[in-house]
Design a protein around this nucleic acid. Structure first.
Length: 867
RNA sequence: GCCCCCGUGGCGGAAUUGGUAGACGCGCCUGACUCAAAAUCAGGUUUCCUCACGGAAGUGUUGGUUCGAGUCCGACCGGGGGCACCA
């Protein structure tokens, strides 16, 4: 089988080419999907994560937007005023890379890609309101972003800070913590370096507690995503404790503040450890070349996971002693250590080797005492010198804490520390502030000006937007804005003296942190959005996208919404009421004998299930199904599929078989199967249409048995498919539609009531497939004689009376094993059920003359005879 | 290492949440139509025993709870994801 799809051209076929183009034009001409605020109607905001205009749409987009479109069209039919917009996440590094490689300006490259992808999306027949289209690289968009940033700055939510930052050596820019995955840049995969720079930060930690606690209320979010965010925010309870420092002569060196989650083990302290980047260490290093060397050595050690795991604990003894806050006269040595992170807590810890693995390793290496202060609750003896005891237990060797369990000891010791004024109970978050400066061109300029006399000053409102200059060069690495001859030279808005414009641009995750708000009034020039419009449409009722944004984009958006609330732009807390994360689109991988990857078009399946290369018939190794990616060449172009099979086929295949949250394997057979079903539907409907009563024929007074059976199937389909769509069980909805189609196909419409029921069934069927295969549905709706558009027609309502059967099939079990089934009237009394079951010959044979000990009857379900 | 999710036919997956396991689709097999093929239509398709009627086993392994377990509980094995020197 060649993987080049060949849709055979036989007569009497559904011509999807003409039909899809026809209805797309009708929808566009009539502005069917244009949304307008209407306070009299309930709204529903459906949004799929907007694409980065990388060049062409891929199958992941097709899946994402198909799912969103099913929801949008369904909700629309259910009577909601639906907002379903589309835009472009248009700033980003690929545009700059293209500029360097292909000598094309990022702006040109981006807008050309947008044009291409827009055409592609339109060919999918999505129910989008294109009048709200936006691109984040448009100054009419990012001017509002600059203004909001200035407001946040004024409100203390944005600040500049010198700190050790993550530097991506390939992209030549800093990265936020969220963008470092296992010590590597999220885009480039290059090991991240440490650099000390002054950068802009947004105070996401200000909302740490709220961002965490509100997760519980996001009931329509996947549990998995909420969990990932909770872990990322990483709340831990503990205490900050102050230790008085002296040198050997007893001279006061101030207080050292440490953070611990185990204040209950304070009596087991045997050393203090400071991060190599701790200010105190920096101070001491000034006159200590050995310490300088140690600090430099620590800096060299990478942050990559593998390195961290194998790196040996290293310490450098400082000329200091720390006075134990609870044990007068007891002092412990102070070290600088490579395993203490400056970014977490206070950058300093107390070492308790008995009950912490790292401290144990460190103490063993440097010969420090290992004290046991917690014992197993069951009295088991342990060798604390051999291994630390990390579990909970009973506190020992700890003065007033002795005999308490760990939790109780924590509260007692915190209370004592607070009483004495040497510590306090605190909550520590893993979450760090969001570093938003990027040393790149193709992003939103940060609206700030550096003046030698006035410091860093905001760009005045009247000068917004700060627009990117077009005349930039990409002939060498570094930030083109920084080397632009004139752009950065401006007068200080405060004193008028020559000053320098900020040349960093914003992290592009800012662009995507509020675009859903902008969609509510995309043309407004005076503000990011109109309050009334925004209040009507927001929050997004259903957001759909990839799980890879579980932390980055989704957490940033939740932060941005809160920052806007802080500056009184909105009163909302959360942007997304419902979230759905769809799975990836995968495909088999193919490898030629020389090890190179082959595309699905370059291979052919031959006799015996073997695969060969088309060009030279050489054998091909078939690899496991993986996410479609250019590097492995296992990609299928949506354009080609839509051209050869039509948008409805692509959409149908995307929805069938695999549950939407799971990975989907793209197969040629699956697509042709979906295509055949479209054709079959067209045939079934066309055949059934002959001899049907015209639309609007009055309902017959009585129905034949066949007619009633068909009507039951139809109305059960409505109920089932509605539930399935609401629950995102599109694959189940598809299965039900297959069943319903099979039922319709098997009906012989001989009497008038069956003919009426057949028309009813067809009309229902067409409306049910509407959200999934809208073009075919619209075509059949038209063929059924309707003047209005299906897209404007309401969702069918099931007749409750037809949803329940009068007879039910009840299973008969003997000792829990199926022996047969009986037909009973619905809700038949238990004794009737029992009697009928016992009369079943298969049961009697199994009983073999024995008397039942007990009979369990579950109405309408099962009769279990126990012997 | 810690946290979370998932293991069902040849394949993708259903199973009203403790009540007839394998819906629906793909693939495969048989038949019809055809000179033939494609397309289409009809039938079959968990495994094993049986010509058949029937019967037995069966949801990663294993133990338990229950009249009854794919579903609940314990242990283990396998796969995937997130976090990770976070004190």
């Amino acid at each position: 089988m060649s993987s080049t799809p060949t849709a055979p051209a036989a007569p009497a076929r559904y011509n999807f080419h003409e039909t899809e183009a026809k209805w797309q034009k009708v929808w566009e001409d009539r502005q069917t999907f244009k949304a307008a605020m209407d306070k009299a109607r309930p709204k529903y905001y459906v949004l799929e994560m907007f694409p980065y205009p990388s060049g062409r749409i891929h199958m992941g987009h097709v899946r994402n937007y198909t799912q969103g479109d099913v929801i949008a069209r369904y909700k629309r039919a259910k009577g909601f005023n639906v907002l379903h917009p589309m835009g472009w996440d248009a700033f980003g590094l690929p545009a700059e890379n293209a500029a360097m490689e292909k000598k094309v300006h990022p702006k040109k490259w981006t807008y050309e890609n947008i044009a291409t992808m827009k055409t592609q999306l339109k060919s999918m027949g999505l129910s989008l309101d294109w009048s709200r289209e936006l691109a984040t690289c448009d100054p009419t968009y990012y001017r509002h972003q600059q203004k909001m940033f200035l407001d946040f700055w004024k409100a203390g939510l944005a600040y500049r800070k010198e700190a050790w930052v993550n530097w991506d050596p390939v992209d030549n820019t800093v990265l936020a913590n969220e963008q470092v995955i296992e010590g590597k840049g999220w885009r480039t995969g290059a090991p991240v370096e440490r650099r000390k720079l002054t950068q802009w930060n947004l105070k996401i930690t200000h909302f740490a507690d709220e961002l965490l606690s509100r997760l519980d209320t996001l009931e329509r979010w996947p549990e998995k995503v909420r969990l990932m965010q909770a872990n990322w925010i990483g709340k831990s309870r503990g205490a900050r404790v102050f230790w008085q420092l002296t040198d050997a002569s007893g001279k006061d060196h101030g207080k050292l503040e440490i953070f611990t989650t185990r204040p209950d083990t304070l009596y087991g302290a045997s050393f203090m450890a400071l991060s190599a980047e701790h200010p105190l260490v920096a101070g001491l290093a000034a006159n200590d070349p050995g310490l300088q060397r140690f600090v430099a050595e620590c800096r060299k050690t990478g942050t990559a996971a593998a390195e961290v795991e194998t790196a040996e604990k290293q310490g450098y003894k400082l000329p200091l002693l720390a006075q134990h806050p609870l044990m007068p006269g007891k002092t412990v040595p102070v070290y600088a250590a490579n395993f203490v992170l400056m970014e977490y807590g206070t950058g300093a810890i107390f070492g308790c080797p008995g009950h912490d693995e790292r401290d144990h390793e460190f103490a063993t290496k440097y010969g420090l005492p290992i004290l046991q202060v917690v014992a197993p609750a069951d009295g088991t003896k342990i060798d604390i010198a051999a291994a630390p005891f990390i579990e909970d237990g009973v506190v020992v060797n700890s003065d007033f804490l002795n005999g308490l369990d760990v939790e109780e000891a924590k509260s007692r010791v915190i209370a004592r520390l607070e009483e004495m004024g040497v510590g306090k109970g605190t909550i520590q978050y893993r979450l760090r502030d969001w570093l938003v400066s990027r040393q790149r061109y193709w992003g939103c300029p940060i609206p700030a000006i550096h003046c030698e006399s006035c410091g860093v000053v905001p760009v005045p409102d009247k000068d917004l937007p700060v627009e990117l200059p077009d005349d930039v060069t990409f002939d060498r690495p570094g930030n083109p804005l920084d080397r632009h001859p004139t752009w950065k030279h401006v007068a200080c808005p405060t004193c008028g003296k020559p000053a320098r414009r900020e040349t960093d641009t914003f992290d592009t995750f800012i662009d995507s942190s509020w675009y859903f708000d902008r969609f509510t009034s995309p043309q407004l020039t005076t503000a990011p959005f109109d309050r009334e419009e925004n209040h009507y449409w927001m929050p997004v009722d259903q957001y759909i996208g990839g799980v890879e944004h579980a932390i980055l984009h989704l957490l940033y958006s939740r932060f941005w919404t809160r920052a806007m609330r802080e500056v009184q732009m909105t009163s909302r807390d959360e942007p997304f009421d419902g979230l759905f994360t769809q799975g990836m689109v995968c495909h088999e991988t193919y490898r030629a004998s020389d090890g190179s990857w082959l595309t699905p078009e370059e291979i052919e399946r031959v006799e015996g299930g073997k695969v060969v290369r088309l060009s030279d018939r050489s054998p091909v190794e078939v690899g496991r199904s993986e996410k479609m990616s250019k590097s492995k060449k296992n990609v299928v172009d949506p354009d080609q599929i839509i051209r050869d099979y039509g948008a409805d086929t692509a959409r149908w295949f995307m929805l069938s078989d695999s549950p939407p949250e799971r990975d989907l394997e793209w197969t040629e057979a699956g697509v042709t199967g979906a295509w055949r079903f479209q054709q079959r539907l067209f045939r079934i409907a066309t055949a059934a249409l002959e001899g049907l009563p015209p639309a609007g024929t009055p309902k017959p007074a009585a129905f034949s048995d066949a007619a009633t059976a068909l009507r039951r199937a139809a109305h059960k389909s409505i109920a089932g498919i509605s539930t399935d769509i609401e629950a995102f069980h599109f694959n189940k909805a598809v299965a039900r539609l297959y069943e319903f189609a099979n039922t319709i196909d098997s009906v012989k419409a001989e009497d008038e009531s069956t003919k009426w029921a057949l028309r009813e069934a067809l009309e229902i069927f067409v409306r049910l497939i509407g959200p999934m295969t809208p073009h075919l549905a619209e075509e059949l709706w038209d063929a059924l004689g309707h003047k209005s558009l299906l897209a404007d027609s309401p969702w069918p309502l099931p007749d409750d009376a037809l949803l329940v059967d009068d007879t039910v099939t009840v299973a008969v079990q003997l000792n829990g094993k199926l022996r047969g089934t009986i037909a009973l009237a619905k809700d038949a009394p238990k004794d009737i059920a029992e009697k009928t079951a016992l009369a079943l010959p298969e049961l009697a044979r199994g009983l073999d003359g024995k008397t039942p000990k007990r009979v369990i009857v579950v109405p309408n379900r099962i009769v279990n005879v126990v012997v």
